[in-house]
Lab assay of single mutants.
Amino acid sequence: TRVETATETAWISLVTALHLVLGLSAVLGLLLLRWQFPAHYRRLRHALW
């Protein structure tokens, strides 16, 4: 049971790290898009909202 718990903890930390990385890359990508294509971003936002 001790090994299982350790594996579970490792998986949880791995998944958390993955989610953090994905979230950060998504935010960075959005910022980059907004910085590179302001007109396109505004049009996209206008279409979405």
Score class of each variant (00 low, 15 high):
residue 25 S to E: 02
residue 16 T to M: 14
residue 35 W to E: 02
residue 45 R to K: 15
residue 46 H to Y: 04
residue 46 H to W: 00
residue 45 R to W: 06
residue 45 R to C: 07
residue 21 V to K: 01
residue 34 R to G: 09
residue 36 Q to C: 11
residue 30 L to Q: 02
residue 19 H to A: 15
residue 27 V to T: 09
residue 41 Y to D: 03
residue 8 E to W: 03
residue 2 R to M: 15
residue 23 G to R: 01
residue 24 L to G: 07
residue 23 G to N: 06
residue 17 A to N: 01
residue 2 R to S: 14
residue 44 L to Q: 02
residue 20 L to D: 03
residue 13 S to D: 11
residue 49 W to L: 04
residue 36 Q to M: 13
residue 19 H to T: 15
residue 47 A to H: 11
residue 15 V to E: 03
residue 10 A to L: 11
residue 37 F to T: 03
residue 16 T to E: 04
residue 20 L to M: 09
residue 26 A to M: 09
residue 17 A to S: 06
residue 42 R to A: 09
residue 15 V to C: 08
residue 34 R to W: 02
residue 10 A to N: 08
residue 49 W to A: 06
residue 40 H to D: 04
residue 35 W to P: 15
residue 25 S to R: 03
residue 36 Q to D: 00
residue 12 I to R: 07
residue 44 L to T: 03
residue 47 A to K: 09
residue 7 T to C: 01
residue 47 A to V: 09
residue 39 A to F: 07
residue 44 L to H: 04
residue 15 V to D: 04
residue 10 A to W: 14
residue 34 R to K: 15
residue 28 L to C: 13
residue 11 W to N: 06
residue 35 W to V: 14
residue 45 R to E: 02
residue 10 A to S: 10
residue 17 A to K: 00
residue 37 F to S: 03
residue 14 L to V: 10
residue 42 R to S: 11
residue 48 L to Q: 00
residue 5 T to Q: 00
residue 41 Y to V: 14
residue 40 H to V: 08
residue 25 S to I: 10
residue 16 T to K: 06
residue 21 V to M: 12
residue 9 T to Y: 11
residue 9 T to F: 09
residue 15 V to Q: 08
residue 35 W to I: 14
residue 25 S to K: 01
residue 32 L to C: 10
residue 31 L to Y: 12
residue 31 L to M: 08
residue 21 V to C: 09
residue 44 L to P: 02
residue 3 V to Q: 01
residue 1 T to W: 04
residue 27 V to P: 05
residue 46 H to R: 10
residue 37 F to Y: 10
residue 6 A to W: 05
residue 16 T to C: 14
residue 44 L to E: 02
residue 8 E to A: 11
residue 20 L to W: 06
residue 32 L to S: 05
residue 16 T to L: 14
residue 33 L to A: 07
residue 17 A to M: 07
residue 22 L to R: 00
residue 26 A to P: 03
residue 38 P to Q: 05
residue 33 L to M: 08
residue 17 A to G: 12
residue 4 E to M: 13
residue 31 L to R: 02
residue 1 T to L: 13
residue 13 S to I: 13
residue 10 A to H: 11
residue 43 R to K: 09
residue 24 L to E: 01
residue 31 L to S: 07
residue 16 T to F: 11
residue 30 L to K: 00
residue 31 L to G: 04
residue 10 A to Q: 07
residue 21 V to Y: 03
residue 37 F to Q: 00
residue 12 I to D: 02
residue 37 F to V: 05
residue 35 W to K: 15
residue 39 A to D: 13
residue 27 V to N: 02
residue 9 T to P: 14
residue 18 L to K: 04
residue 7 T to A: 15
residue 10 A to K: 14
residue 13 S to P: 06
residue 33 L to T: 03
residue 38 P to H: 07
residue 45 R to L: 07
residue 32 L to H: 02
residue 9 T to G: 11
residue 4 E to S: 06
residue 19 H to E: 09
residue 25 S to L: 12
residue 35 W to Y: 15
residue 42 R to K: 13
residue 9 T to A: 15
residue 4 E to A: 11
residue 8 E to V: 04
residue 4 E to N: 08
residue 4 E to I: 07
residue 19 H to I: 15
residue 40 H to N: 08
residue 26 A to S: 13
residue 46 H to S: 09
residue 16 T to G: 10
residue 27 V to W: 05
residue 2 R to T: 13
residue 18 L to W: 12
residue 42 R to I: 03
residue 30 L to P: 04
residue 9 T to R: 12
residue 6 A to F: 05
residue 49 W to K: 08
residue 28 L to N: 04
residue 4 E to G: 03
residue 38 P to Y: 08
residue 48 L to R: 02
residue 11 W to R: 06
residue 25 S to F: 09
residue 5 T to L: 06
residue 2 R to I: 09
residue 30 L to M: 12
residue 8 E to M: 07
residue 22 L to C: 15
residue 26 A to L: 14
residue 19 H to V: 15
residue 42 R to P: 01
residue 9 T to M: 11
residue 23 G to C: 14
residue 38 P to T: 06
residue 38 P to E: 05
residue 44 L to M: 10
residue 28 L to D: 00
residue 42 R to W: 07
residue 49 W to P: 03
residue 36 Q to N: 13
residue 33 L to F: 10
residue 30 L to T: 07
residue 46 H to F: 06
residue 43 R to S: 09
residue 16 T to Q: 04
residue 49 W to I: 05
residue 29 G to F: 12
residue 15 V to Y: 04
residue 42 R to D: 08
residue 44 L to G: 03
residue 25 S to C: 11
residue 47 A to I: 08
residue 29 G to I: 13
residue 46 H to M: 05
residue 21 V to P: 00
residue 8 E to C: 03
residue 37 F to R: 04
residue 4 E to W: 09
residue 29 G to Q: 00
residue 18 L to D: 01
residue 7 T to M: 11
residue 18 L to E: 00
residue 21 V to T: 11
residue 31 L to N: 01
residue 46 H to E: 10
residue 43 R to W: 07
residue 20 L to E: 04
residue 24 L to C: 06
residue 40 H to T: 11
residue 10 A to V: 08
residue 10 A to Y: 13
residue 23 G to P: 09
residue 43 R to L: 05
residue 21 V to N: 00
residue 37 F to M: 05
residue 6 A to L: 06
residue 38 P to V: 06
residue 13 S to M: 14
residue 47 A to W: 12
residue 39 A to R: 14
residue 17 A to W: 08
residue 32 L to D: 03
residue 33 L to Q: 06
residue 46 H to Q: 12
residue 36 Q to G: 11
residue 7 T to R: 13
residue 22 L to G: 10
residue 46 H to V: 05
residue 10 A to D: 08
residue 43 R to M: 08
residue 5 T to H: 00
residue 6 A to H: 04
residue 41 Y to W: 15
